[in-house]
């Protein structure tokens, strides 16, 4: 684990801890007075901060994982071990950044509704949103751990994920040096070897 990973885990853990404490305080506060008070504002600010932190970190991971070109040894390793894993994790992290953003908006909406029409289920909904984000964070961490340890792709579920990803590659991601990918299932291209050779040369040039 490098410095940034440790810092990230520590910060997110701290955020969740603060929210847990704030929820308990809010609960005690509700027991004493049944009004909407300052604690609500504090809690909402903390939730906003955690959501923004998670969003920023997911962008940070995206940037860091772009350095794959420095560690290319062979084409097999490049294509399967590095590139597709990294692409999938990048894809997932981008999606999770979008999800954190949606959660942020929905929490703002819920806060406004709650300010004008106070509901009993405020704590439940806050806990639910936090749980969704925590699960996403755990999921992304597990994915990162599995890729780093080299476990990724050893189960049927993940194999299906990778194959689905290969078959539905976005059109601007080019594994075949200009040739259309989807036709390859029917057409057995004779130039495959040449194309791979060319791409090896290109990768070597890039790494130099």
């Amino acid at each position: 684990m490098d410095k940034w990973t440790r810092l990230r885990i520590a910060l997110v853990g701290l955020g969740f801890g603060i929210i847990f404490v704030a929820i308990i305080f809010r609960f005690i506060y509700l027991q004493i007075t049944k009004n909407v008070g300052y604690l609500l504002l504090i809690l909402s600010i903390i939730v906003f901060l955690v959501i923004i932190l998670l969003y920023e970190f997911s962008k940070d991971i995206n940037l860091r994982s772009k350095n794959i070109y420095n560690s290319v040894d062979s084409l097999d390793k490049y294509i399967i071990e590095q590139s597709i894993d990294e692409l999938i994790s990048n894809n997932k992290l981008k999606k999770s950044a979008v999800i954190y953003f949606i959660m942020f908006i929905s929490y703002i909406i819920y806060m406004f509704i709650h300010l004008y029409y106070p509901a009993e289920s405020f704590l439940l909904v806050t806990a639910f949103i936090m749980l969704v984000m925590l699960l996403l964070f755990i999921n992304n961490s597990i994915l990162e751990y599995r890729i780093n340890k080299g476990y990724y792709g050893s189960t049927d579920y993940e194999a299906r994920e990778i194959i689905n990803f290969i078959l539905t590659l976005p059109s601007n991601t080019d594994f075949r040096n200009g040739a259309a990918f989807k036709n390859l299932f029917q057409v057995n291209d004779d130039r495959t070897g040449d194309l791979i050779g060319e791409s090896i040369d290109k990768i070597k040039e890039c790494s130099d």
Partner: peptide, 13 residues
């Protein structure tokens, strides 16, 4: 699984 992915990537049937 890696062999399978390689085959799919190379476009072989």
């Amino acid at each position: 699984y890696l062999n399978l992915f390689q085959k799919i990537l190379n476009g072989f049937k």
